[in-house]
């Protein structure tokens, strides 16, 4: 126990814990809206699509500055959301195919650029893939500061525009009818997802960032029918996964933080599937058993009554 406390007192671990918690919190909040709008896999597509942006940022600047990478990744992410939106709106191709097309083509382009950079003999390139596959343990105080500011920004926007996002998630037609700028808000939500993904990539990596957007939101959906509560729960689940994942990872055994965080989130999901009230597996079984018993009792009663009638007659 004292070992754990010692680890917690290490300022470096504290930063990482704080950073991962914030990351889980903000991606849980954004993820809830993405889930309700049936765009869960958007996070996956966007985090892959960031690769060419990062490569181009590196090629243009020649330096490995995190801020430039973030700008490049965000630009590529926005281009990807625009591409996905354009394909789904203007052709008969459905959203899932559009996502997959944009994901693979952007990632393929990114790989081409990456190999170009590697073959061009620039000795400075070696950290590029690390950026994409994520290393929470290498986060610095400055990174955590950036993450904190951006997470607060994300959560702030979601709180301020909660009513609008709610309407947009459940009934976009009505939202358009009462004069909301639906297309703009669509793009705004996409932009928020892009920001969350871009910030998260360097901490947990491409694939696992997608999990942080999806899994807490799906778990939260099991516990409640109210959007406000769901968003809060998803944020809490995300933060808890970040916290516990980082904690286990910091506790020796040298396991990577990102996958552990995702596994904690997945265990929360499994708990939700089993134990959630009303929608969970257990409560459904209990309800079924209760109804069956009740029905059986009523049947027995009616049989008894029928017999009693016969005897009186």
């Amino acid at each position: 126990m004292s070992d754990w406390l010692n680890i917690l007192q290490d300022p470096n671990v504290q930063w990482i814990l704080f950073g991962c918690m914030l990351l889980g919190l903000s991606s849980g909040v954004i993820g809830s809206f993405a889930y309700l709008r049936k765009q869960s896999l958007m996070g996956d597509a966007l985090s892959h699509a960031a690769l060419p942006g990062v490569c181009i940022a590196f090629m243009l600047s020649g330096s490995k500055s995190i801020a430039l990478f973030l700008v490049g990744a965000a630009a590529a992410g926005l281009a990807a959301t625009f591409g996905i939106g354009y394909i789904t709106r203007h052709t008969r191709i459905k959203q899932d195919s559009a996502l997959a097309i944009v994901l693979t083509v952007f990632f393929g382009l990114g790989i081409v650029l990456l190999t170009q950079i590697q073959h061009s003999g620039n000795g400075n390139q070696s950290g590029l893939d690390k950026f994409l596959f994520g290393q929470a343990a290498s986060m610095l105080l400055s990174d955590v500061r950036i993450m904190a500011v951006i997470s607060l920004f994300l959560i702030g926007v979601c709180t301020l525009l909660f009513k609008e996002f709610k309407l947009l998630s459940f009934d976009p037609g009505f939202a358009r009818g009462i004069g909301y700028p639906v297309a703009f808000m669509d793009q705004l939500i996409m932009f928020l997802i892009v920001v969350a993904v871009v910030v998260g990539i360097q901490a947990v990596g491409v694939v696992l960032m997608a999990a942080l957007l999806i899994t807490p939101a799906v778990s939260a959906r099991y516990w409640t029918e109210k959007l406000g509560l769901m968003v809060v729960l998803a944020g809490a689940f995300g933060a808890l996964s970040g916290l516990v994942g980082t904690f286990i990872s910091a506790n020796g055994n040298n396991l990577p933080t990102g996958p552990l965080t995702v596994l904690v989130a997945t265990s929360l999901f499994v708990v939700s599937v089993v134990a959630a009230p009303r929608r969970g597996v257990l409560s459904k079984l209990l309800l079924r058993a209760y109804v069956r018993n009740k029905l059986r009792g009523e049947q027995e009663k009616s049989v008894l009554q029928a017999e009693r009638k016969e005897t009186t007659v």
Binding site: Y35, K38, L41, V207, L213, T215, V218, V262
Partner: peptide, 30 residues
Amino acid sequence: LFHQSGVQSDASIGVVFTALFAVGVILVSM
């Protein structure tokens, strides 16, 4: 399975593959 129990299909794809991938990465590093 998850899709039939009420999770949207894209979300259930996302949950399942990321979880398995995380297991894989941890196995590799262990």
